[in-house]
Computed example of a mutant assay.
Amino acid sequence: MTDAAVTEPTTEQAALIARVRRMMLIAGLTSALAVAAVLIAIGYRLYRSEGSPAPATDVTAALPKGARIVSTGVAGERLVITLDIGGATEIRTFDAKTLKPVGKLTFVSEP
């Protein structure tokens, strides 16, 4: 077996190697910057969504005369209240964070 002798690179080869190293350094720094930007964006969103608690609110909801609450429940980010108003059933929904009314569904019997 013959061993190939390792020779010093020529000036053109050395310039090419330096250029490739420089391009690899630029690509590596760009990739690191992109990964850092993504991690910062994820951290910011996590911090903003869980780090800031909802403001405390006291809300008084007025029910119609003779109404009674049949049931309550939570569906997603909604608070659901089922009312019995003089024999008719009504469902009212509220936003769970702000407690503002979102919708009302009334059931009536057909004549």
Score class of each variant (00 low, 15 high):
S49N: 10
T60G: 04
I42R: 11
V6H: 09
A61T: 12
E8L: 11
T98K: 14
A96W: 02
L105Y: 08
L39K: 06
G43R: 00
I91D: 06
I17V: 04
T11C: 04
P55M: 06
L25R: 15
G86M: 02
A4W: 07
S49T: 12
R21K: 15
V74T: 02
S109F: 00
E12S: 10
A32E: 05
R22V: 05
L46R: 12
L16I: 00
V35K: 05
T30L: 15
T11F: 00
E90V: 05
A36G: 14
T72G: 07
R19D: 13
A54Q: 14
T7K: 15
A54C: 07
S52M: 05
Q13F: 01
A36N: 10
V74Y: 03
T89A: 08
S71E: 14
V38E: 05
L46C: 09
K97D: 13
A18S: 11
I26E: 15
L25Y: 14
S71V: 00
A67F: 01
E12P: 03
I17A: 09
A54G: 14
E77M: 04
T11R: 13
L105I: 12
R78Y: 11
S52G: 03
V74D: 01
L29E: 13
I81Y: 12
D58P: 00
G103I: 02
A54K: 13
P53E: 01
M1S: 12
T10A: 06
G73T: 00
V6F: 10
A54P: 12
V38D: 05
E8G: 03
L79F: 14
Q13V: 10
L39E: 08
G76I: 04
K104P: 05
A41S: 15
A36W: 06
S52P: 00
P55D: 11
T60D: 06
K100R: 11
F94H: 13
G51P: 02
L63D: 05
A37W: 00
T2D: 08
L79V: 12
E77I: 02
G43P: 05
A56Q: 11
L63Q: 06
R78N: 15
K65G: 09
L39T: 05
V35D: 07
A4N: 07
G51D: 01
E8I: 08
L105M: 08
